[in-house]
Simulated assay, not measured.
Amino acid sequence: MIKSVLIFNNHGKPRLIKFYHQIDIATQQALVQEIFTLVSKRPDTACNFLEGSKLLGGKDTRVIYRHYATLYFVFVVDESESELGILDLIQVFVESLDRCFENVCELDLIFHFEEVHAILSEIVQGGLVLETNMGEIVAAINEMNRAKKRTSAGVTAAGFNSLRTADPLKRFRR
């Protein structure tokens, strides 16, 4: 089972934090700091799997990560998950982000955090992997964006029409 998904930059600033079990904020911050310290010191040629520390749950927990440009994508999982499967899942997540944002960068994660969380929710929910087909993931996100545009366009048109039909001087009259 996936315990958490973290994305942080080369300086340790979190860009996405998603825990799939209840954990207090102070422990979350300590975990992010500990994981950043663990993975940032490793050379690019080192293995992308780490055994967890006491904060992470001991030897039953694995930290699996990939470093892309200025971002670390980290999945914290229990021993029932395949390390290579999670590495592939990270690749699917990154490529899905790339398709949705066209050359995803750190700023996309900051300014479009709702969409990033939606993409992650298409892939993982409740710590379980739901979808790994990038075409399905991107299609679901595109449909969500189209529905959002239709809804906002309908609200805007309805608001505009009600303003147009209302008496424009009504608010000035008593």
Rank of each mutant, 00 (worst) to 15 (best):
D60P: 00
V116Y: 07
S152P: 12
F172T: 08
A140H: 06
G126P: 04
E34Q: 06
V74F: 12
R99M: 04
R164H: 03
R66E: 12
N48W: 04
A166V: 03
L163A: 10
C47E: 09
I119Y: 10
D88H: 08
L31V: 04
A147M: 15
D44F: 09
I2Y: 07
I110T: 15
L38Q: 15
K170C: 13
M134G: 00
S80P: 00
E136K: 07
Y72W: 10
Q29W: 07
A147P: 00
D98F: 13
V138E: 00
T61G: 00
L169F: 13
T27Y: 02
G135H: 13
Q91A: 14
R66I: 10
G154W: 05
P43V: 09
F75R: 09
L89P: 10
A69H: 03
N145F: 12
D108R: 06
D108W: 00
L50T: 06
L6G: 00
G52H: 01
K148N: 13
G52K: 00
L107N: 03
A118H: 14
L16E: 08
N10L: 13
S4K: 07
N161K: 12
K148E: 15
E51S: 08
A46V: 01
E122L: 10
F49M: 11
E79C: 02
K3L: 08
K41N: 14
E136M: 04
D78V: 06
L6K: 01
I17S: 10
S53H: 03
E136L: 06
Q22P: 01
A30G: 03
T27A: 05
F160H: 12
S53N: 05
L87S: 07
D44C: 04
S121W: 02
P14I: 08
